[in-house]
Design a protein around this nucleic acid. Structure first.
Lengths: 240, 240
DNA sequence: TACCAGACTTGATTCAGGTCAATGTGATGG
DNA sequence: CCATCACATTGACCTGAATCAAGTCTGGTA
C-alpha cells in the first residue's frame, strides 16, 4: 500500500468506479479490491489529447472510467479510420501484440484507469476468472468488428449513417426503438465521417436528407431526435 | 476413451496435427494430449459447404487442420463481406457471444477439429494457460481487424488489391519482399472482391493494370508472381 | 476434336460519393 | 454587440468504382 493511501482509500477507489459495475473488474470480489487498486492507477486525459500511440510498445491496458475516447488507425498520408468510440466501462488495449494496433485520444476529456501488463498478469494469475473475462471482452469486440467490416465494405452511405444512429441508440441504458429517441452525438462530424468511412460533407448531406424525410429532427449539432427509429433501423440493415 | 480408439491413437491424432504446432493446442503438454483429443472431434467439410451459420447458437470452437475456409457476414439482400480467410492452425469461433457473429464455409475442402464449448471449458479449467492462449489469439485477430477496417474504410481499390497481395505473401513461411514472390490464390475473384469490398470487375481490372505496369505477372488465374513486391507494398500503404 | 458451362476479362456507360468552393451558424471574447 | 473562429451545411462539379454488356479463356466431357 502506498504512502498516500490508506487501504480504505484504495478499496473505495475501485468500489465506486464504473469499471466495477461494467468492466472486467467485476470478476474480482469486494474483499480483494485493494489488490486490484494496487495494480492500477488513475489518470485524466484532456480533450483531444492522445494516450495510446499506434505502433508504440503495448505496455498497458486501460479502462475508461469517465468521459469518452476515440480509437483509430492512420495511413501514412493522414487518412484516418476511427475504429471505435469507447465510454465508461470499456476495456482498451486487447488489440495489440507487442505494439498497439491503434491510437487513442480523449473526446471531450476522459478519465482512465491504467493497468500495466505486468500487474495485469499478476492479477490473472491470482484471479483466473479475470483471464476468462478478458477473453469475453475480446470476443464481444470481435463480434462488433465483424459488423463494422460489413458496414465499411458493403453498405451505402445512407445505410452507414442509419447504422451509426441506431448504434448510438443501443448505447443508451434502455434501448427502445418503438418510440422517438433523443440522442446526444458528442463527436464532431469529422469523427463520424472517419468512423463510417465517408466525408463530412456526405454525413452532413445524409443527415439533412433524413431530416427532410422526417426520419429525424436536428435540434442542435450534437442533439438529434430519431422520429422513426424503426424505419431508420430498416435502412441500416439495407432493407429499405 | 472411446471404443474406436486406443489411447495411443487418440494421442497421435493430436500429436501430428498442425494445430499442435500452430494453434492454441500448443499450450498443452505432450503427456496430456489424450485429454485434449477426448474433448475434440475431427470433421471434413466439402468445397463450398458451410459449417458455421451466422446467427446460429455458438456451441463450438474450431481449429482448421487442413485446407482453407472463408469467414463472412451477410446483409439481408445478399451482399456479402468476407471477413477473413483461414488455413491450417487458425482458431475459429471467438467472434461470438451466444450466437456466431459470422458464417464460415470451406474453400476447396477443409478438415477441422471441433471443440464443443463445454469441453473447451473443462480444458481451460484444467490448463489455465490455454485460456491465456485463447486471449492471445483473440488479440491477434483484433489487431488484424483494425488494419482491415482501415482498408475497407479508407483505401482506394488499387491500394486494397496491393494490400491483399502483400497479405498473401506474409502467409508464406519465409516472407521476403526483396525478391519476386510466387503466390497461389486459391479463392475465386468473387471471394477476393467480397474480401476487399470491391466488385470482381474492379479486382480484375486492377490485376490487369498491375500486369501492364510489370508489377506482377499472371501465369494462370490462381498463380500470380509479384515481380516488384516492395513497390506493391508501397502502393498498399497508400504511399505510391 | 468440338462443345459447353462457369469463371474471368475487357469495354462502355452511369452514378454515388468525393472534391472544391461558398455560405451559414453558434460559441467565445474584446 | 459585434468580430472572430471553428465547425457544419449546401451547392456545383468531378471521378473512381459500380453496373451493364460483350467477349474470352479454361477445363471437363462426349
Amino acid at each position: 500500500m502506498s504512502a498516500s493511501h490508506t487501504p480504505e482509500d484504495v478499496h473505495d477507489r475501485c468500489a465506486h468506479c464504473v469499471g466495477r459495475r461494467l468492466s472486467v473488474c467485476s470478476s474480482i470480489d469486494d474483499c480483494d479490491l485493494a489488490i486490484l487498486a494496487n495494480e492500477s492507477s488513475r489518470m485524466t486525459v484532456a480533450d483531444g489529447r492522445s494516450f495510446i500511440e499506434e505502433g508504440a510498445p503495448a505496455n498497458d491496458f486501460f479502462v475508461v472510467t469517465g468521459g469518452r475516447v476515440k480509437l483509430f488507425t492512420l495511413l501514412p498520408d493522414g487518412r484516418r479510420q476511427i475504429t471505435g468510440f469507447a465510454e465508461g466501462g470499456h476495456f482498451l488495449g486487447l488489440a495489440a501484440s507487442t505494439s498497439y494496433a491503434f491510437g487513442a485520444e480523449a473526446l471531450g476529456g476522459a478519465t482512465l484507469c491504467r493497468f500495466p501488463h505486468a500487474g495485469m498478469q499478476r492479477l490473472t494469475e491470482r484471479f483466473p476468472n479475470l483471464e476468462h473475462r478478458l477473453r469475453e471482452e475480446a470476443s464481444r469486440e470481435l463480434a462488433l468488428m465483424q459488423a463494422r467490416m460489413t458496414l465499411l465494405g458493403r453498405k451505402t452511405a445512407r445505410e452507414r449513417v442509419a447504422t451509426f444512429l441506431i448504434e448510438r441508440c443501443q448505447h443508451l441504458e434502455k434501448p427502445d426503438l418503438s418510440h422517438p429517441v433523443e440522442l446526444d452525438l458528442p463527436m464532431p462530424r469529422t469523427d463520424i465521417a472517419d468512423y463510417l468511412g465517408l466525408t463530412i460533407e456526405t454525413v452532413s448531406r445524409i443527415l439533412s436528407a433524413f431530416k427532410k424525410e422526417k426520419l429525424i429532427s436536428i435540434r442542435s449539432i450534437t442533439h438529434i431526435t430519431l422520429l422513426m427509429p424503426e424505419r431508420i433501423s430498416t435502412i441500416a440493415e439495407g432493407m429499405e
